[in-house]
Amino acid sequence: MSDVYLQALISGLMIGGVYALVAVGLTLIFGVMDIINFAHGEFLMFGMYGAFFASVLFGIDPYLSAVLALPLFFAIGWTVQGVLIRPVVGKSHAIQILLTLGLSLLMQALAQFLFSADFQSLKLDYGSATFDLGGARVSYTRLAAFLIAMGLCAALWVFLQRTDTGRALRACAEEHEGALAVGIDLRRMYKIAFGLGIACVAIAGIAMTPFFYVAPVVGPKFTLVAFVIVVLGGLGNIPGAVAGALIVGVVESVGALVMPSPSLKDLGVYLLFILVLLFRPQGLFGAKGS
């Protein structure tokens, strides 16, 4: 394998790991509540801004912010679920999509109002350090983002498998009425699911701030990529989402090589998405209920 392709493969896996955390949040929310969250990327954007300002104003390292963000964004997700999303749980998908689209529009414009439309990026001492891996350059910050994201995905998986709350969440995902019948507090589970989903996506954003720009318009791309991954991996399927994310990451970075212009790299991802939706809507690895 030539060096450029090895480089693309490694970069693709690195960014794919971060995508996995974004998508796992989305698929958890979908699996448990059957809600399609079009404002998902906007929470990522706010996570990035949080880390950016914490760093430039108070000198807080983004990796410390990532730790602080877990309870903070869990609480934000919990509240958003309780106030905004709860009334549309169980309503038609159109209503849910329109509500979260409205939220996404509002959050984007709010970010523009508060932080201006300028693109910002964090300059850190260690931001551009790299090491050599069999001929490919790997940046430490990207590797860190990958490891944080993969670690959190694994932690979430263990949480869902091994704890009572996790089992209750999975029960809700399987069968709402059954979960109610055995005495699971659905409303509380919804808040936990949304809180966890939002915390995941926000931390994914924060883990990227050392090497990724932040702007009010950064969200929709991640929302769409997360949808691609979630559909690819099967709706509600967390290991499927991780696998799908790594595939999308690699498709994107190899796409940047083979497409006439590197910024066309997303084209391959979207085409893959449409093909999967058309020919294998249950995802590559099977979905909830299939």
Binding site: G102, L106, Q108, A109, L110, A111, Q112, F113, D118
Partner: peptide, 16 residues
């Protein structure tokens, strides 16, 4: 007026 976008904030709010 900050970085602008107040009209869109209102649109998002109205939609919700």
């Amino acid at each position: 007026g900050g970085g602008g976008g107040l009209a869109i904030i209102l649109y998002g709010f109205l939609l919700m």
